[in-house]
Design a binder for these strands. Structure first.
Length: 125
DNA sequence: TTGTTGACCCAAG
DNA sequence: TCTTGGGCCAACA
């Protein structure tokens, strides 16, 4: 059973290009409806991992529940995230807002979730 | 075993 | 819409 970080990364990797989701939704998918902060913590940790293993995780597709990029600028910053999303065809306005009605990822279905949580998914890296 | 810290969320006002 | 206050969770010292 992967630890919480790995579970978060596994879900984030499944967000298709041009779609976004929120920290809270990811937490909910992982059967921890109130662990949104921990999801953000996991992604923050991701930034410090320069391992190839973590190189292709589309962290830019994770935003907050308001459809806003809430990244406090550190190295990459909110602007970088906006650029990455625009490059995928997601419209991001000057206020760093995204139209969730258009770009929200519907999420994993229950069968896929079960695969991840039970650890016998073939796509578990 | 605490206490602290975050790329969060929710309800009230 | 915006601001507050409270809560929740995982990692770390």
């Amino acid at each position: 059973m992967p630890n919480f970080y790995e579970q978060v990364y596994a879900v984030v990797r499944r967000i298709p290009p041009g779609k976004v989701t929120s920290y809270g939704r990811i937490a909910y998918m992982l059967a921890r409806p109130h662990a949104a902060r921990a999801v953000g913590y996991a992604l923050n940790n991701l930034k410090d991992q320069h391992d190839e293993k973590y190189a292709n995780i589309p962290w830019q597709r994770v935003i907050n529940r308001e459809g806003r990029i809430s990244t406090v600028n550190r190295e990459h910053g909110a602007h970088k995230q906006a650029e990455l999303l625009r490059a995928e065809g997601v419209e991001v306005d000057e206020e760093l807002r995204i139209d969730l009605d258009k770009y929200l990822w519907s999420g994993l279905n229950l069968l896929e979730l079960d695969d991840i949580l039970s650890g016998n998914s073939s796509s578990e890296f």
